[in-house]
Amino acid sequence: MALRELPFRTASGLSRQVRPAISTGPFSPGRNASTAAIQDIEDSSSLAVPPPSEELAKSFDPVARSRLRRQGKKQLPASRYQYRPPKYYRGPLHPHQPPPASNPASREFQPGPFSLPRLEQTYQSTIAADILTLTYQHHPPGYRPPKLENRLRQWTGDSPYFKNRPLRGPRGRGEELRLLTPPRTFRNIPKITKVTVHSYVPAAQENSAHLHVAGMVVQAVSNVRATAHKSRHNVVGWNLRAGKYVAVTSQMEREDAHHFLAKLVDVVLPRIKEWKGVPGSSGDGAGNMSFGLTPQQVALFPEIEVNYDAYPPKMIPGMHITVHTDATNNKDARLLLQAIGVPFYGKLND
């Protein structure tokens, strides 16, 4: 310890007398380039201008004005007035560039957000701070974290091809390189990034109506257009043929994901009879948690209930729900879901 403290004491003892006294000139306020410019800036803001008078605001009618302007004149076709962005992106050097996707004129523009979800507000105000307190690991000052041994194996041998070759993965079957969990700070509190709803309907191979119904159900529940998926392999045991459409999914982000989870936790899950919870074995070790709902449970969603008769009988599918979080292990992801209100049961998969 004493040896470690030594350099600083010596250095400070030496530098105290060697360091020259730097004397700066007298402080002059008018020497900066910005001071001259400050005088040119107007002190009145355009935002401080009072709104238009009440009678002027009341008499303003944009539709009537536009009608008056168009009266008796033949207008050019609408396409002459409207800007249409190019259909194909032809590279950064092309003179005709499409506007960014945030521009309403863009072809990729999607309106939103439409609200500030309650679940998101709860996360910001309560859940995030509590998770930080629950998972914070304190280290005393001067703590040095233990060095991690190399998780990847070297290529050992005489082969010249081993030079500069990417390192080998862990040894053993089924062994994988797990994500590292960095120390918890206020910047890396786990949060919900995405929710995926997936519905597998093998009966759609014989009768495509099943797939259409599943698509409508998933779309109604998630508020996102459903995507259909083909099966990739022949599996004889399951009567599955490659190339046939058998599943629909939809991915929700941000506002949609929060509204969906809030609806699930507050409306659907409490109404399921004798539901034990999400199995504790759920989780892929990278922050994603999955669980399933049966057709009877899916029918409890308010969007399905409101026009339950519109769906053909016995065609409402079950679904799998995957909650994607940016946690790096099962424990943190489960903690986040528990804070939101999803119960777990059974042996936990840590």
Partner: peptide, 23 residues
């Protein structure tokens, strides 16, 4: 902890209405 959602700033609510009409 807070029991209900917060009041939206007038700009936020105006923005949400604008986006809904665009939708």
């Amino acid at each position: 902890p807070p029991q209900i959602t917060r009041d939206l700033h007038p700009f936020e609510s105006a923005f949400f209405l604008y986006q809904r009409r665009l939708n």
